[in-house]
Amino acid sequence: MAIIEVTDLRKSYGQLSVLEGVSFSVAEGEIFGILGPNGAGKTTTVECVEGLRKPDGGTIRVLGLDPATDGRALREQVGVQLQHTQLPDTIKVWEALDLYAAFYSRPRDWRELLEQWGLADKRNARFGKLSGGQKQRLFIALALIGNPRVAFLDELTTGLDPQARRTTWELIKQVRDSGVTVVLVSHFMDEVEELCDRVAVVDRGRVVALDTPAGLVDGLDAAHEIRFTLMAACDPVALLADLPGVAEVTVTADRVVVSGRGDFATAVTAQLARHHVLVSDLRIDKRTLDDAFVALTGRSL
């Protein structure tokens, strides 16, 4: 069942058109990613869905409610972590959680969230004294304090060190496993690949692709390469050039590079095995979400 339904969303700021017909739907219980370069319209899209901005056109339904007219009922069931927000420097961690819990009619126990997000020993610390990672964890905890059915997380791990990012990812999976639908805005490929069940790639105000991360990579019809070194003399061109998917075989001394499209790597390795050709130093260029992204948007992040 779709928990968020966005159809033909349009928004412009003056002359500048930011969203030009964005449509997607988010299923209950999934982690849905919105991926795109800076200025693509990701944040504007989620801000319309959260009810922070009024779209110029199109329809939005979140949990069956229209954010523009049923905002109050919706905000009870939605948790939000915004990019670039701060708290007063002098507020203590527990005070912030306790305060935000009072805003909702059925809040979660903030002590539990404090434990879960590793902030128990920072309970009495002031916001201004927290590290970047601790602040970020506090904001996620605040997004979950109202016991929401949907959580929007915008640029979740920006500014975190690699260790803290991994930890955050694990916690986000736990959030999903506890039944909360997560909408993740990101411009990090690894994050989207690791976390998201499905991804909408947004570019220049439009959804240019919507699939699972693996689906996006598989749908990529770009040439890639497989390389190896021959351990005994043979003619790789005769052996490999006619295999399905193979575009070109180049040999430089004993080093062979085979380029092609689709899943030609399996065919190449099978053919080599069938003819008992021993090779070493075999490398297959793994296609990544990065490649898919470049192919879809014509630029890299």
Binding site: L52, L82, H84, T85, L87, P88, F103, Y104, G146
Partner: peptide, 16 residues
């Protein structure tokens, strides 16, 4: 500073 820090904006995503 409440506006600058996005505290008012953050609050507008809550029922209050």
């Amino acid at each position: 500073s409440y506006r600058e820090r996005g505290i008012l904006r953050r609050m507008s995503t809550t029922p209050v």
